[in-house]
Design a protein around this nucleic acid. Structure first.
Length: 181
DNA sequence: CCCTGATTCGC
DNA sequence: GCGAATCAGG
């Protein structure tokens, strides 16, 4: 255990090469290595003769790898489009008479529809710490993006989406303890 | 403002 | 050789 984590040991250089080749940013690599800044990483990269690789195949939109199967996020708005999402089970439920009740109305939630400029949205590759992870669009299509706005400190969403994601969960007068697996 | 890599230059 | 400071973009 007498190996200084500092300096560019062969192993660290190797890891640097690997990560750099994989397309990670200098700051990301620096964080991965630890003990060095992104400047150090960039400096070393240049000294090693490496530099701007994996750029030709990127149409200025950063899409080096194939689309990742983003299926883990089933958080907030997970409604593809034209697809009826059936949550739980309603087939045999036989709707009582809730038709009479108002359904297509949203008295609460003054702005469910968040308008995020497309230029502000980001891909999963561009997503970083401090960025809103609110999914926008269909995760199965290549145009899937995340909000990308500045996220609240210690929160995965921006101020706007955090409000939607973390609702007081109160205004549910009707139905609330009908959950039975 | 956040970030990216590129370059310079004192150490 | 190293990397902070700086520069030039997005």
């Amino acid at each position: 255990m007498s190996d200084q984590s500092n300096t560019w040991s062969d192993e660290r250089v190797e890891l640097l090469r690997k990560l750099w080749t994989e397309g990670l940013s200098a700051s990301q690599i620096a964080a991965e290595l630890g003990g060095v800044t992104r400047n150090a990483v960039i400096g070393k990269v240049h000294r090693l003769g490496l530099s701007g690789r994996a750029k030709s195949a990127a149409p200025a939109a950063s899409r080096p790898r194939k689309a990742a199967p983003t299926r883990s996020l089933s958080h907030p708005m997970a409604q593809p489009s034209g697809q009826t999402v059936v949550r739980g089970n309603t087939a045999l439920a036989a709707a009582p008479e809730l038709e009479t009740e108002a359904v297509p109305q949203q008295q609460f939630q003054p702005q469910e529809e968040v308008v995020v400029p497309l230029s502000e949205r980001v891909t999963i590759m561009e997503l970083r710490e401090a960025m809103c992870r609110w999914p926008m669009g269909d995760p199965t299509t290549p145009d899937f993006r995340f909000c990308g706005a500045r996220s609240l400190l210690g929160m995965p969403y921006c101020a706007h989406h955090a409000r939607i994601a973390y609702q007081p969960a109160a205004d549910r007068r009707r139905e609330k303890k009908v959950m039975r697996s």
